[in-house]
């Protein structure tokens, strides 16, 4: 029996490397949830994750329907059993990703989960920090002005680790 209280999570730093809707939402939800618990939160968008900060793409993120062998999970959104398979070749058909995205957005709205732009604002307003990765910005030829206005800073990897310093910090990669 250990009567000591476990050391709490004080800060969570989430590295977002995927730019699909289903790749981005979990990180946003975890960051917002942290702030709601009084835990500091920062998001570091890198590689394709920058899709979620790019002004021209962030409102149109899509659910990945190719190479996602768990898409059967989405079947209940159509009123079909979760055990029904979703062959990946179907996911490549025109419009399927758009349709899956539409379904997910609709379910999210029902659960009061905001669209990506509003979600970024919510996290930022709650004191969470939004960072973009400098190396990935250079690779994708992006400038800070191409990004959503609320981005706190463009950081190098070293600066991100500095920003993550502190006892009780946890770093997650998604």
């Amino acid at each position: 029996m250990n009567s000591e209280k476990p050391a709490p999570v004080k800060k969570i730093c989430i590295i977002v490397s995927k730019g699909s809707l289903d790749g981005v939402y979990p990180a946003l939800i975890m960051a917002n949830g942290a702030r709601m618990e009084g835990i500091e939160a920062s998001l570091f968008f890198t590689f394709f994750g920058l899709n979620a900060l790019n002004q021209t793409t962030l409102d149109d993120l899509k659910v990945a329907t190719v190479g996602n062998s768990a898409l059967n999970m989405a079947m209940p959104m159509l009123g079909l059993p979760m055990t029904m398979p979703f062959p990946t070749v179907l996911g490549a058909l025109p419009g399927v990703s758009n349709f899956a995205t539409h379904l997910m957005n609709k379910e999210m709205e029902k659960l009061d989960v905001p669209p990506v732009r509003e979600f970024l604002e919510l996290i930022s307003d709650s004191g969470g920090k939004i960072f973009a990765c400098k190396l990935a910005m250079d690779m994708f030829k992006l400038k800070k002005e191409d990004l959503w206005d609320g981005v706190d800073d463009v950081l190098t990897v070293g600066q991100f680790y500095e920003e993550s310093a502190g006892e009780g910090t946890h770093i997650l990669f998604t």
Partner: peptide
């Protein structure tokens, strides 16, 4: 949201 976090800090 900002005001809410300021009024009730820490959750």
């Amino acid at each position: 949201t900002k005001e809410l976090y300021a009024l009730f800090p820490g959750g």
